[in-house]
Simulated scan of single mutants.
Amino acid sequence: MTRVTVLFDGGCPLCRREIALMQRLDRRGRIAFRDVSDPAASCPVDRRAALARFHAIEGDRLLHGAAAFAAMWRAIPLLSPLGHAARLPGMLRLLDTLYDHFLRVRPRLQRWLA
């Protein structure tokens, strides 16, 4: 199975909680989690873009938004069906739309969780 690298905002309390859950579920160690909020960490994309929107690298493909979430889910056996369902026609578009709506309320959720 292709290893996935997840780029996440370690400065975001919401992101930290989600990544902590994903790390617990990733019992086979198929995901490398990289906190791109750390200026010393290497970041294969513009750091501001990586902090603003979820990114992952699957194989040699850089993914963002729903596609990045789906890649992470496919690497975790428990969530794999969700990741594969994201490949159905129209599903990524729907998930990206939902993710875009979430990004609008993310700052309020971050303040609430801080």
Rank of each mutant, 00 (worst) to 15 (best):
L7H: 02
F8E: 06
D9C: 07
D9T: 08
G11V: 04
G11P: 05
G11T: 11
C12T: 09
P13V: 03
L14C: 12
R17Y: 06
E18S: 13
E18G: 12
I19S: 01
A20R: 11
L21I: 14
M22Y: 12
R24Y: 00
D26Q: 07
D26L: 08
G29D: 02
G29H: 04
G29E: 10
R30G: 14
F33S: 01
F33I: 03
F33E: 02
D35H: 06
V36E: 06
V36P: 06
V36I: 14
V36T: 02
P39W: 00
P39K: 01
A40S: 14
A40W: 05
A41T: 14
S42F: 10
S42W: 10
D46V: 04
R47K: 06
R47V: 13
A50I: 09
L51S: 03
R53I: 13
F54T: 10
F54W: 11
I57D: 05
G59H: 04
G59P: 02
D60N: 12
R61I: 07
R61E: 15
H64D: 10
H64I: 00
G65Q: 05
A68D: 03
A68C: 07
A70E: 07
A71F: 06
W73T: 00
A75C: 09
A75K: 04
L78E: 11
S80I: 01
P81E: 01
H84P: 00
A85S: 11
A85G: 15
A85H: 08
R87P: 00
L88D: 01
P89S: 01
G90W: 08
G90Q: 04
M91N: 07
L92C: 09
L98G: 15
Y99N: 06
H101F: 09
H101I: 02
H101K: 11
L103M: 12
L103F: 03
R104H: 14
R104N: 02
R104G: 01
R104T: 14
R106S: 04
R106N: 04
L109W: 12
Q110H: 09
R111A: 12
W112E: 05
L113R: 13
